[in-house]
């Protein structure tokens, strides 16, 4: 199987820096997601690993083999890297049937026909497509084509599998079930996976670690739990999950809410000057009787299992989500008090 190591990878298109200083060590059998808004450089990074784009700087190592080294001008072609890849557009060849599509990587390796067929059928069984072996792609649904693509990427038993938003063209239900299928297959084969997505729930549920990217830069690499509870910066906090940002000023060991000099929180990061407090909607409790902050109930949205409140505190709206809350307990215009828990703090990035 395969480890993957990227060190100081840069990719520039003319003046545009699509990827800047990407570093990661991926362990054998790990499931890594690249997560970030559109245009942040996820695909570009993946294509550099695959060998479709040449890094402007840096070294990529797969297993114990260096596949790309910009300084030495060394670059291994994609076909020599022994990687499996699933494309967003499936890229299933329309002029070949399912068996030929899936068997193609083995054919390239000159695997004898009988063994090839056996391995293809095993693969089709794994992706639940055995009955469709003789079909052509135009006789398959999008989800089935996606599974053909997955089988084709896995059939040659690569150590590393790359997936670029493989589920984004599928409908919501199918997306969910494919998510678990891919996870299960990964566990079964013990393969290393790099999974590109901009869907955070996909990344959260499937990954061992998530790489959060923005504007070509890695913002944070960590386990889903760490990324959610301990985001490295404002961008990550904002991108993963919901969050309220409250302007604040740091003085010594405390951070004070702007305009309310009597409300303060600890300052573990030793921020100085302008700061931002961040608190997730589910970490706020509302009460009628008393709490840290006073506000006015502005709006309530009934969500079935929870209620989504907007509360006006000074000039700012604070969002609060409470599970199993009584929708009728408050009315718009009521005076309410809020208590914050698990408050995070960041330097003000503007």
């Amino acid at each position: 199987m395969a480890e993957l190591k990227l060190s100081h990878i840069y990719k520039k298109f003319g003046k545009v820096v699509a990827v800047g200083d990407f570093n990661i060590d991926v362990a054998d059998g790990e499931f890594i997601s690249f997560l970030g808004p559109s245009g942040c450089g996820k695909t570009t990074t993946l294509r550099m690993i695959a060998g479709f784009d040449k890094p402007t700087e840096g070294i990529i190592t797969i297993g114990d083999r260096e596949v790309s080294n910009a300084e030495k001008g060394f670059f291994l072609a994609p076909e020599k890297r022994g990687i499996g890849m699933v494309f967003q557009s499936y890229a299933v060849w329309p002029h070949m049937n399912v068996v030929d599509n899936v068997g193609y990587p083995l054919k390239i390796q000159n695997v004898p026909k009988e063994e090839r067929l056996k391995r293809v059928m095993n693969m089709l069984e794994l992706v639940h497509l055995k009955e469709y072996a003789e079909r052509f792609p135009n006789q398959l649904s999008g989800g089935q084509q996606q599974r053909v693509a997955l089988a084709r990427a896995l059939v040659a038993q690569p150590g590393l599998l790359l997936l670029d938003e493989p589920l984004s063209n599928l409908d919501a239900k199918l997306r969910e079930s494919m998510r678990f299928e891919i996870s299960a297959i990964q566990k079964e084969l013990g393969i290393t996976v790099i999974y590109v997505t901009h869907d955070q729930s996909e990344a959260m549920t499937m990954s061992d670690r998530i790489v959060v990217m923005s504007m070509g830069k890695v913002q944070q690499i960590g386990k889903p739990y760490d990324i959610y509870t301990n985001p490295a910066n404002q961008m990550v906090a904002d991108f993963i999950g919901l969050v309220n940002f409250i302007p604040a000023i740091a003085k010594g060991d405390r951070i004070f809410m702007q305009g309310s000099e009597n409300i303060s929180f600890p300052n573990p990061k030793q921020i100085a000057g302008n700061a931002v407090l961040a608190v997730r909607p589910e970490n706020i409790t509302i009460s009628k009787t008393g709490g840290m902050v006073e506000g006015v109930m502005h709006h309530r949205f009934y969500m079935g299992d929870s209620v989504d409140y907007r509360i006006k505190v000074k000039e700012q709206f604070i969002r609060v989500i409470q599970k199993g809350s009584d929708y009728t307990a408050y009315h718009n215009g009521d005076k309410v008090f809020l208590d914050f828990e698990n408050v995070m703090s960041f330097e003000n990035e503007g």
Partner: peptide, 17 residues
């Protein structure tokens, strides 16, 4: 769709093939 060709490359096939 250029990814049809890329899929062949990553499957181990040279540009000419």
């Amino acid at each position: 769709d250029p990814t049809l060709e890329e899929a062949a490359r990553i499957s181990g096939s040279s540009p000419l093939k």
